[in-house]
């Protein structure tokens, strides 16, 4: 059994095989592997006795259930209107320059992926970004770079 299959059988053990265990299982895989591979989706479909198209349908509906490979850390900059009016473009440009990648891409060392996200619900403190599950509000290009820099050296 591959590590993914082991992970899935553990998740199935924990959450069960009913249709409504699909979400927590997919979230569990993304937490570990950062994305849902084709093999992972097929294994989940087999375990839950549902079709792979249904698994893909659920996975593709939710932005946070990625179906393409992502880096170990995912940075998501809010792109919705309040953050846009607070210059989210500058934040993105600063991060793109610092990480040497464009939005949607992953650094060469597979450490960081840069994405945009729809409203994160922090409109009063925009612009905001997420690094993994952590929210960073009221950014400036400088503070954003500082935060990412600290994140890089915190490990």
């Amino acid at each position: 059994m591959s590590t993914t299959e082991v992970l899935i059988s553990e998740l199935v053990e924990k959450h069960g095989r009913t249709r409504n265990s699909l979400m927590p299982i997919l979230q569990g895989i993304v937490q570990q592997e950062k994305f849902l591979s084709e093999d992972a989706m097929v294994s989940v479909a087999r375990e839950l006795n549902i079709s792979a198209a249904d698994v893909f349908g659920t996975a593709s509906f939710y932005t946070f259930l990625d179906t393409v490979p992502r880096g170990k850390n995912v940075i998501r900059v809010c792109k919705t209107i309040s953050c846009h009016m607070k210059n989210k473009d500058e934040i993105i440009r600063a991060l793109e320059n610092a990480l040497k990648i464009k939005v949607g891409e992953t650094t060469h060392d597979k450490e960081y992926t840069l994405l945009t996200a729809n409203c994160l619900g922090w409109c009063h403190k925009g612009p905001v970004m997420l690094i993994n599950d952590e929210v960073y509000p009221e950014l400036t290009p400088e503070s954003a770079l500082k935060i990412v820099n600290e994140h890089m050296h915190s490990k």
């Binding site: 097929v42 549902i50 079709s51 792979a52 198209a53 249904d54 698994v55 349908g57 593709s60 509906f61």
Partner: peptide, 26 residues
């Protein structure tokens, strides 16, 4: 369920698994 609903909003599409060609799916 060879066909399902994938993506959302204006990106929604009726799709096979990973949008594979019909002759490669169930």
């Amino acid at each position: 369920s060879a066909l399902g609903v994938a993506f959302k909003g204006n990106h929604q599409s009726i799709s096979t698994f990973l949008n594979k060609p019909l002759n490669e799916v169930v």
